[in-house]
Computed example of a mutant assay.
Amino acid sequence: MQIIGLALIATVIALGFLNKPQAQISFFDIHALCIVLLGTVGAVLLGSKPRDFMRTFAILQEFLPFLGHYGRTTRQMEVERRRLEALWIQGRRWDAITLAEQSSLATTREMLQQIAARASVALSENRFTAFVHEVMDEHESSLANWEMMAKLGPSFGMVGTITGMIQFFKTFASGTSDLGAAMSLALLATLYGIAFGAGIASPIATFIQRLMNDRISVIERCEKTARQLISMGD
């Protein structure tokens, strides 16, 4: 992964000094865009394990209504928590057991096990803390990578701007009038970098953080509910 990352960084530098045909300054410059995107992806590759790199971009499926499942699973955890609590309070113990046995969620099954066994506070904290650690292990690397891309996007935009200015002065010194391509790269690279960092990578990092916080909050409520039901039984 690191070798691929280094290759992408080298490609970014090469793109900056690539001679382009004369062009008018416009809103779109493919070289500037590639410098920003390839640079940020290369940086992620340099600092990531293969599993973490795949998770970084796999999280994007959560933005799609039919592919996103993490937020939906979190909401299901909350629904089952409330239903298990209601059934147990109503004395419908068999229905509560059936709900937990049929559930695909480990938190629901764990709640019932702790309630039935009248688990100690220490055991309860230990088990639900393990669930929290699983959430953090699954998403912290993705969050860190998107936060890094939010910071590095403008930096690679400056790489494009600097190489574009070098090309501009080189072309200017040669006495030719072919300045459009160099100016396009110099002006648009920073724009793309800032837009990518502030408009794409940073909101995605915020989204991942919210997914984590929502899941952790539900896990904490599951632990609290289990403790309350045990106390009621006592």
Score class of each variant (00 low, 15 high):
residue 194 I to T: 02
residue 40 T to M: 06
residue 144 A to H: 05
residue 64 L to Q: 05
residue 193 G to D: 00
residue 64 L to D: 07
residue 143 L to R: 04
residue 144 A to R: 04
residue 47 G to S: 11
residue 105 L to E: 02
residue 14 A to L: 10
residue 52 D to Y: 01
residue 37 L to E: 02
residue 200 I to G: 09
residue 168 F to T: 06
residue 194 I to C: 00
residue 156 F to V: 04
residue 26 S to W: 04
residue 6 L to H: 07
residue 219 I to N: 03
residue 181 A to T: 10
residue 94 W to Q: 07
residue 133 H to W: 05
residue 107 T to S: 05
residue 13 I to W: 09
residue 163 T to A: 06
residue 65 P to M: 00
residue 34 C to S: 15
residue 63 F to C: 01
residue 104 S to L: 13
residue 154 P to L: 08
residue 83 R to V: 12
residue 152 L to Y: 05
residue 137 D to M: 09
residue 191 L to D: 05
residue 108 T to A: 00
residue 180 G to N: 02
residue 49 K to P: 08
residue 233 G to T: 13
residue 161 T to N: 01
residue 168 F to P: 04
residue 166 I to Y: 04
residue 183 M to I: 04
residue 19 N to I: 10
residue 72 R to L: 12
residue 204 I to M: 08
residue 16 G to K: 04
residue 81 R to Y: 08
residue 24 Q to L: 15
residue 14 A to N: 07
residue 63 F to S: 00
residue 232 M to S: 13
residue 198 A to V: 10
residue 92 R to W: 11
residue 161 T to W: 01
residue 62 E to H: 05
residue 111 M to Y: 06
residue 180 G to W: 01
residue 97 I to R: 12
residue 120 S to D: 06
residue 72 R to G: 09
residue 14 A to G: 10
residue 192 Y to F: 11
residue 102 Q to I: 12
residue 112 L to K: 03
residue 83 R to Q: 14
residue 172 F to H: 08
residue 54 M to V: 10
residue 48 S to P: 07
residue 49 K to D: 12
residue 227 R to C: 12
residue 127 R to Q: 15
residue 87 L to C: 03
